[in-house]
Structure formats: C-alpha cells, structure tokens
Amino acid sequence: MNVNLYPLKEFKLPIVAECINPDIFQEKSLKEIEALKVWEGNKQKRLGELFKVEAVETSFEAPVITIHGNASRVRRIGVGMKSGEIIIKGDAGMHLGEEMRGGKITVYGNVLGWAGSMMKGGTIEIYGNAGDYLGAPYRGSTEGMKDGKIIVHGNVGREAGAHMRKGIIKIYGSAGQFAGFRMKGGTIYVQKDCESRAGACMVDGTIVVGGHIESVMPTFTIEGLRKRVKIEEGEIVEAPFYLFIGDLTENGHGRLFIAKEPNPHLSHYEKFL
C-alpha cells in the first residue's frame, strides 16, 4: 500500500513526526496510520489531524510515502527507516532520515539541518538546498555517517559530513564552512564553490572541491597535481586538481582535492611540488 500525505494547513509550530516512516506504515490500515501520534508544538495530535491521509493499494512490498506540500516544519521524517521510500514534493524539516539504515528518501524542495544525520545506509536525494550538519552526528557524538549516500543538487550549509566514516555525499551546488570536519573516511564531493576550512581536523577520507575555495587550511600540506579525480564508480571529474594532505594537527592523511583552474590564488603552493 502506498500512502499520500497532504498537509491540512500551513504549519506554524514545529511538528515532530517520527512515525512518517515506511517501516511503521507497513501493514497498517488507513485508520491506524491516521491514528499515529505526532507532536504539534507541545500538543500531541494524531497524524490524521495534521495531514489528509490517502492510501493507494499497490502490489509492491515496501510502501512509498509521498508528502504533497510544504513539510519544512515537519521534523524527523523517516528517522531510522530501513526500507521503502519517502518522496516529499515540497520542503522538508530538520532531521530528515536521521539514523536511516536503508530505503530511499527523495525531496523535491529544500531541507533544513541534520538531514541524514548519523546515517548508516540507504539514499537521500535532495533537489533543492540542504541546511547545516548534513550527515553529521548529534552533539557531542563522533558517530558520523557510517554508510549510505546523500545527493544534494543545491547548496548545503556548514559542517556537511562531519565525522563521516564511510559512504558518499555529493553536492552539486556549493558547500558552507567545515565540509568534512573531523572526517575519518568516505567521500564528499562539492561540485561548485566551497567556503573555507574544508577538511579541518580530518583524519582520513576524501574531499573533492570542483569550484572556488576561499582558502586551504595552513595545516594541510601539498602533495601534488592530479589530472582527474574519481568520485565513485562511474563518476570521474576530468580536470587538473591540487591534492593536499591533512590535517597535520590530527596527524591526518585525508585527501583534499581542489580544482586548479578556479583557484589561481593557490598557485603559490606549486613551488613546493
């Protein structure tokens, strides 16, 4: 059974709706789904009080949940989901797909902070922009993204992929400061520009910046020039890249590829090659 959700109003208060999750919807009747508990501000409500819930019988095993409309106030959609699919035709709120293990989430709008936080598997694809802390762990935790894939077609905020261990984050727009902060493994690709401090305190892993970067941390050392960089199977960027290694402060050996052409201000590093 597939489920369509239509917001019944423009939400003003924060909505916490962990129940919007294919694993939870599975094998539930329409009535049961409508009765699922959500929070609107400090009041507990039923899902059916906030959304018009529509069920479509299908032959597929794993359900597809589609939200039609603006869900930018709706937090924790798809938290911990293991299978199935969520499609959001509009914006989505914070903590989308946090600790997700499998399945797919697609958003045809913008997403606020902590999307894919502490993700362990599955795919999140965002056609708009994503907020801060994309794929990053909860406060105080070092449990970064362990696996899975996040694709953002717009821009992202600060600290994308912080503490990342495995998996891939592809950003086809620009990234804010501290992309790949304290990263330990995996790959972050920023196709366009990147604010400064990319890879700060990284220990291992790969960051690729295809556009302009304000500056490279002084605690990175230049390793060489590369003609191309492989992002993942089937995606290779053919362009000259500087390769930096760091972060020295953490005795790290992370790889930071910076496209040469958009960054003439880094040419002084070439004297070390």
Partner: peptide, 8 residues
C-alpha cells in the same frame, strides 16, 4: 555537560 550523546 560533556555528554549530550549519552543522554539523548
């Protein structure tokens, strides 16, 4: 204070 990840 040090450990929000312990509590949440």
């Amino acid at each position: 204070l040090l450990r929000p990840e312990d509590h949440f």
